[in-house]
Amino acid sequence: MITVGLRTLARREIVRYFVVFSQTLLPPLVSSTLFLFVFGCSIGSRIEVDLGGNSYLEFLVPGLVMMHLIESSYANASSSLFISRWHNHIQELLLSPLSYAEMVCGYLAGAVSRGLIVGTGVYLISMLFVRTGVAHPMWVLYFALTVTVIFASAGLLTALWADGFEKLSFWGTFVLSPLIYFGGVFHSVSMVPDALRPLSYANPVFYLISGLRYGLIGGSDVPVGISAGVAGGLAVVLVGIVTSLFRAGWRIRS
């Protein structure tokens, strides 16, 4: 049930990123335009690899959308919770009768909505460069939602764990970015040397990108069912962990 308290927290989270939209919503749209121009139009036209009958630009679009779904949802959740801990206005929530599940859902609502807005924006911008269409809309919706929930939860975990800005940026820089870039935003697993392919298969982001690619252009590196299982499983596990940590008061109650 969506209570007044949960609605209020979700609205607060959404207001927060709209207040600073020049830092939260515009930069991904600018960087995507640059990626599409440089990698898609300039370099991509010279790449001659079999990508299931798709051009490199068509292949690139789902990867870029996924990259921004991940980065936006993660950044929103991690920065919002961390700042509220840093300024200690998280007490406003902790003193309220919101349940711990409502607190988590409120933060997730903000992060998921920001991810979806940015992801949609990136997709619309890509239409200026290439018309890909949407092969399987329901799979697109499924992966967009599960991926934003996964990385919003990961952002909340980071914000709980971090006790300074340095630690806050650690996971994003040293873990998330390598996972995204090696996960197949810019390349198919068929382009990876045989010896390194096990690394791709061990990377959960690879399955998520592959799943969204199936939804958008109809082709993927792994069967969509496997990708869907990985996405759903990760979302359930991470939301469960975050909710448990909120309930236990880890790093938010002394």
Binding site: V4, T8, L9, R11, R12, H89, E92, L93, S96, P97
Partner: peptide, 25 residues
């Protein structure tokens, strides 16, 4: 301590706080 939400106006701080307690907008 003055631990207010820096993203909200003064009225917003109170309206949102009431909302967390289930009070309609």
């Amino acid at each position: 301590e003055f631990n207010f939400d820096p993203f909200l106006s003064i009225e917003g701080i109170l309206v949102y706080q009431a909302g967390y307690f289930g009070i309609g907008r």
